[in-house]
């Protein structure tokens, strides 16, 4: 079973986000593997441990992304591929085309990724890669079984779950709950440097074109306003609350 895992490097979930001139300040912010991609990677490692095979992690980005790829290698992935986009203007469409191009010539049975990244939450890349490669896809998956050339994926739907069966090769995107990712172990960390980490550029892949999406501005969510307390007797307070909900908050 050859498995490709698409990962993205994102800000640490505990990082303090600051914005300068419409951009997030990246200096000094700890970078991690997008947690949803980590679920995908963990699933790939478990499938490999069960039935053998090879796990290739692929990411797009600049030099710094190699750290995320090395972390993935330390967790147990066998090989890594970086699609170098340093300095290039990219959007989800270009990243997805590049990733699809990078893996299109490889022999694989399964492609896994997180269903979205925690930074921009666009949930675009997995789906676009599947479409470009003509693979069946199942998204937001919380349970995955691989058998007899098929993937049985349980996914979250409104009010419940559904089980989808697709033939392999297929692309599956991971949701929280799929598994509990492991820590890399010390030996894995020391071996990661000896594992293959290839770099391919956008031009080598023949991917070009201008982004279709332009980010106009980035703003922080407004600071949380102090709550309002109504301290009179219950009848008066309720009346004031209703007034406030109607006239100030305008929700009723």
């Amino acid at each position: 079973m050859n498995i490709v895992v698409l990962i993205k490097q994102t800000f640490d979930t505990e990082a303090k986000i600051a914005i300068k001139e419409g951009k997030i300040v990246a200096d000094g912010v700890t970078q991690i593997i997008n947690p949803y991609d980590e679920f995908a990677l963990e699933e790939a490692l478990r499938i490999k441990e069960k039935s053998g095979g090879d796990v290739l992690v692929v990411s797009a980005g600049g030099e710094k992304v190699k750290e995320a790829l090395r972390s993935a290698l330390a967790m147990g992935a066998d090989r890594a591929l970086l699609v170098e986009t340093e300095g290039a203007a990219v959007d989800e469409g270009i990243v997805a085309s590049a990733l699809a191009k990078a893996i299109s010539g490889l022999s694989y049975n399964l492609v896994l990724s997180g269903w979205k990244a925690i930074d921009d939450n666009s949930a675009q890349v997995g789906g676009r890669v599947a479409e470009t490669l003509g693979l069946p896809q199942v998204n937001v998956v919380t349970q995955l079984t691989i058998e007899d050339g098929k993937a049985l994926a349980v996914r979250e739907v409104e009010g419940g779950t559904e089980t989808v069966e697709v033939p392999l090769p297929a692309l599956i995107t991971a949701q929280r709950g799929l598994n509990e990712p492991r820590y890399p172990n010390m030996r894995g960390i020391m071996q990661a440097k000896k594992k293959e980490l290839k770099v391919v550029t956008l031009s080598e892949l023949g991917v070009s074109g201008a982004p279709q999406v332009a980010v106009k501005n980035v703003v922080l969510p407004p600071a949380k306003q102090a709550g309002k307390l109504f301290r009179d007797d219950v009848a008066t307070s309720v009346a004031q609350l209703v007034q406030a909900l109607r006239n100030e908050a305008k929700v009723i």
């Binding site: 750290e67 330390a74 820590y183 010390m186 960390i189 990661a192 440097k193």
Partner: peptide, 13 residues
């Protein structure tokens, strides 16, 4: 990079 990765592992643990 290895030293930092080992430190991060120990920190997470």
């Amino acid at each position: 990079e290895e030293q930092l990765a080992l430190r991060d592992l120990a920190h997470d643990f």
